[in-house]
Design a protein around this nucleic acid. Structure first.
Lengths: 190, 190
DNA sequence: TTAATAATAGACCGGTTGTTATAATTAAGG
DNA sequence: CCTTAATTATAACAACCGGTCTATTATTAA
């Protein structure tokens, strides 16, 4: 059961990485074929409905990946301010040094396809909800009310998505760093 | 001098609208041709460097458009909290009713092309800077320090971009509304 | 061992992409 | 009116797109 569906997993991983960097329409199936070394016949064997199906599975993969990444950081910091700051600064680290960025996890593909592919739109929505759910749990555990927790998680989610976009566009870590610094503005008064 | 370059202007307007909704790679020149009714020969007459040049001029058009839109609202509200809230709620109005959204002003195209077209990346960066400049002026006039004004303008810019993305993805005004509600958290203490 | 199924491999399809070249038309100025 | 340039109109271009198809090889079940 170990190496089962290895090709499928490789396709999903390569696809999710490329989609993050160049978006849905910016990545051709041939790019995914070439980078993964897996032939087109296999792609359509595992994803008979084609590119859209592969994209949805790639989005779900990114969703789980980021969700557990946030969860892991939150487990290390009881204080919500520290937790969110560490979360955002870790994102910022993706843009340090040689600057080989991972792209927007979901944002670009969401912005591209929200109006032309309902299944993709829903997959992106589900990813955002998953991340916000981790935020909400943390805030509830820190004594915030249900409404406060939900509202703040939306605001922080928006800030993070926008911050990644600004960092990518300016080729600078500064936007994400500044956002991390301003986190206490929200979370001071319990 | 009135109808001079009318075709060029139409191309820019149609292009910027389509790029906002479907991104760069999601819009073909044929789409722009068809919607504007202007032939391909004219397009390459006015934009001899092709699609990328048209996109850059479309981005600059959107940049000026949104900049003056923000400026106009800010002129009506002296209080920065009111000003920013009105700004964000006006964006939210684009998503009410029949939901015929204008898409992300720049975000999608920035997320798509930051790694594959340096001219487009720079044009997007310039747009973000232009909007932040309006924010900074307002905050400085309200008594915030230079550093506070710059930092807050980055945070708010990120929140707005992320908020639009979340509203588009969820097909709901709620994210932008919640963000508008939480603006006082940032701007309370002068 | 055999039969059935899964997976790989890649040539191939029609359609569309952005771009170029060139011809026809229109507008402007003397 | 004539000339010249600006603009519009087609047509063709190679390159690439997502997707289909058939053949072949591995793997599994009987």
């Amino acid at each position: 059961m170990l190496n089962k569906n290895k090709s499928k997993d490789v396709l999903i991983k390569v696809a999710s990485r490329l989609f993050r960097i160049r978006g849905y329409d910016g990545v051709g199936l041939n790019d995914i074929i070439e980078e993964s070394g897996i032939p087109k016949g296999s792609l359509y064997h595992y994803f008979p409905k084609g590119k859209e199906q592969l994209a949805i599975e790639a989005i779900n993969h990114t969703k789980e990946d980021v969700t557990s990444q946030i969860q892991e950081i939150f487990n290390r910091f009881a204080d919500p301010t520290e937790a969110f700051q560490s979360h955002i600064l870790e994102l910022a680290e993706n843009f340090m040094g040689n600057f080989d960025p991972l792209g927007m996890p979901i944002g670009t593909i969401a912005g591209e396809k929200y109006s032309t592919s309902e299944p993709i739109r829903i997959a992106c929505q589900s990813a955002f909800e998953s991340w916000q759910a981790v935020y909400i749990t943390k805030l509830l555990a820190s004594g915030y009310s249900e409404k406060q927790s939900k509202d703040l998680s939306i605001v922080i989610n928006a800030m993070v998505e926008g911050g990644i976009l600004l960092s990518l566009t300016t080729k600078t870590v500064k936007p994400l760093q500044v956002i991390a610094e301003q986190i206490p503005l929200f979370l001071l008064k319990k």
